[in-house]
Design a protein around this nucleic acid. Sequence first.
DNA 1: GTCTATATTTGGATAGAC
DNA 2: GTCTATCCAAATATAGAC
Lengths: 206, 206
Amino acid sequence: MALAIARKQRRAGVREAAREEILQAAWKLARDKGPAALTLRDLAKAVDLRAPSLYSYFPSKHAIYDAMFAEGNRRIWQYVRQQPAEPDARQQIKVWMRAFVRFCCNDPALYQLLFQRSIPGFEPSRQSMELANQALEWGRAALVDAGVHDPAASDMLTAITSGLISQQTANNPGGDRWIRLCDDAVRMFFDHFDRRQGGSKHDPDD
Amino acid sequence: MALAIARKQRRAGVREAAREEILQAAWKLARDKGPAALTLRDLAKAVDLRAPSLYSYFPSKHAIYDAMFAEGNRRIWQYVRQQPAEPDARQQIKVWMRAFVRFCCNDPALYQLLFQRSIPGFEPSRQSMELANQALEWGRAALVDAGVHDPAASDMLTAITSGLISQQTANNPGGDRWIRLCDDAVRMFFDHFDRRQGGSKHDPDD
DNA sequence: GTCTATATTTGGATAGAC
DNA sequence: GTCTATCCAAATATAGAC
């Protein structure tokens, strides 16, 4: 019995590895031509299969997008969270935002798929969406930690962040014309909400 | 001779009117399903023609997108410029930005086509692009008028603007969760660049 | 200028042999 | 699980009659 189970698990592991390989190839194609231009034929060719064989691993093309969405979320938030810890809450946010912006600008395909809903007809599944929501919630909590209590503040910060990224990728791809405004933008943001709250907190520069 | 020319012009006018009607129908479809989902069949049906007949008016689908791009630019900037004139340069910018954001949020399809490059393979022609560039230049000049000389400022302002719009349309379509942050964002922006320049100018509230 | 008919291409997805 | 063969649908674009 134990042996049979072990064999099953090994098989499951192999299958999982194959799915993973397909996903990585899908990301590579998405980066080359945009996530919307992904086709099953191209994807199959990239992993040395025929298109119908992909259906052994994913039930549909949308399921592939959904898996990409989930995997992309895991990847970006892992990257952000592994940034060095900062004693100061605002400095921490600055570091996180810098990492987030950099990551997205280096991988516009990921930004489009995860945050711009650029695939016609694709909606992430509940499960996958939850990953994204957790991250947002975590960001809101960080702001409260940093002494910003205005509920509109987190909306303002997500707007600034997405604005920097979309301008950067649309109008200066590969450059840093908007990326380099990132720190300044965070300063601007904190100064503003400090003034509105009356009580100004620190925000020491790097 | 004069008569022949007049006839030619009348004909040209009819043709122009038909092109205009096609364009309006194209915008209607783009608003319904997104600009990327526009098809010649649907478009033809909307103006009571068969698909091939559209080629009498536009040489290709991309030409239709290009005409939409140009027409959309004319439309949005006309709307912005027809806003009430304000004696104060900053108040003027606030009014313009409010109008711009409102216009884009009411017509996300326009925003996508003009500013998000969401159509795979479509690049606006030189001619059409010039319209867009003039508008940007005009915005930069307005900032100088308002006493903001930092060249990075206009990039920051476009980032804030596009961030508000994209968050609004992506995460709260039909609502005003980000739209209502618009005035506050402009204040934040001016305060920030005032401080950096040392010399603080006015910015009276409405 | 408009039509019918059609070429051409390109996708996603399925059937069934192996 | 993988393949070949195929289906089916959708889309741009062209040819040629009227």
